[in-house]
Structures are given as structure tokens and as C-alpha cells.
Design a protein around this nucleic acid. Sequence first.
DNA 1: ATGTCACACCGTGTGTGA
Length: 259
Amino acid sequence: MRLVTWNVNSLKARMPRVLQLLEEVGPDVVCLQETKAEAAAFPADELAEAGYEAAHHSGGRWAGVAVLARSGRARGEEVHGLPGEARPEEARWVEAEVDGVRVISTYVVNGREVDSPWFAEKLAFLDAMAARVRALREARPDQPVVLAGDLNVCRDDRDVYDPAAFAGSTHVTAQERERLEALLDAGGLVDAYRDVDPDGQLFTWWDYRAGHFHKGLGLRIDYVLAGGLEVRDYAMLRDFRKGSKPSDHAPVLVELGRP
DNA sequence: ATGTCACACCGTGTGTGA
């Protein structure tokens, strides 16, 4: 399974680049985050013309997630929302079954400031993710799971361009990192990037401001976490962060296979 | 450099979220 995850920062604004990616990369499955679309305005027809069907959970102005699958692939149950989340209306979690694999696209709460109410919601969201993945794995141990998206956490200091500059900020706290490890444990999941490059450094997000992309000042906050599948290849598609009207995130491409 | 982008609103700019 050739799978892409991409925080597009508005699907409407990014549609030309999304169609370019579908054509050039030819993924089987695409997990999108921050689609920022009203359900009625989701561009399902345009995507269908490009050969993809969408399971989308749309919340309007903010957030919004989707799973695209090549037309004709076997599709199963679709789940909108994360059991136990505080604000289901924010549309941060969607599950789809494609070719027998449970595919999840998620956009984790940002958290804004450490010790703010939003940070507490972020930690609770990460806890609910682990509980959901554990429940899925226990209910169907033979079904592979891919959890992909913008987790808004840097797993360790290698995933941060300047750890000192981020001291005291969200995305790098012990509380967030402990929960990411707990999520991996709960689902028996592998961090696809670390699996293929245990000692490397690679980013997936760069601030639009101050030329951070050009200077290599980024974070790794977008992940593909795989359970019951082998990670055969991993690529961060840097070119999609360049050029005209890029997202502030690059897409990530993985090749997954049944062991 | 407080450095950018995208959204909604009744708007030729402001507030919100990232």
C-alpha cells in the first residue's frame, strides 16, 4: 500500500497541488488534515474525476480530516470522530477501511500554550487516541492499522531544529512525548520514519515566516504509525513545500506491505 | 523583523487560529 499523509492547510486553497500529487505520486491512500471545508463544500466530485473516493469528516472553518482511496478499492466501515474526545465538532479524526486495512487520518489539538486549557485538551485527545487504537487492535488483532496525520508532537529532540528555542513550548514537553510513546505501545505501532532511518533527522513542517523552510528550520510533527504492516519505504516529499501556494507541511509518502 | 497564510465577516480591513 502506497500511502501519503499531508496537512494541506485548506483543501480548497491546495486543490491544484493535491491533484498534482495524486497524478505524480499515484498513492493508493491519502490521509489529509486541515481540510477546512464545510461538508457540503468538500470537493468530492473533483477528487472522483481524479480517481479517488473520499471518507471525510468536515468541521467547517477549522480542522477537518479525510481519507482518500483509489476508486474501486474495497471499502468497509467508516468512523467519524474519536470516542471520548472533548469537542467532536472540531472534526479531527476519521477512520476508513481500505483493502482490509484500518486507515486513520487525524489532526491532533495544537495546545497553544503549556498549562492552558487547550493543552489539557491536547493531552486528553492523545490519551483518547491510545484508548481507541488499543480497542481496535483488541477487537480485530488480524486487521492492520495505519494511523497517519499531524500529531503536533515532536517525538524527541532530533525532531526539532532548535530544542533550546522550544524550551517551555508545546510540541516538545515530556507530557506530550510520554503520550506519543504510550500511543505506539497501545497499538503495537511503528513510527515509519524511525523504522527506516533510526538515526536521521528530517522535518515535515516549517513556519511560513522568516524563510524557515529555506533555512532548514522545521519540526517533525507529521507521522505514519503502522501496526501489523512492514514499512518498506519512506519519503518526505520536499518539493511540495516549495513553489506556488505551498502548505506549511510537506506530504509524507510510505510504502507499506503485509509481513 | 511583530517576518505568513487562510478563514469568515459585510469588508477595500479586522479578528482568530495556526
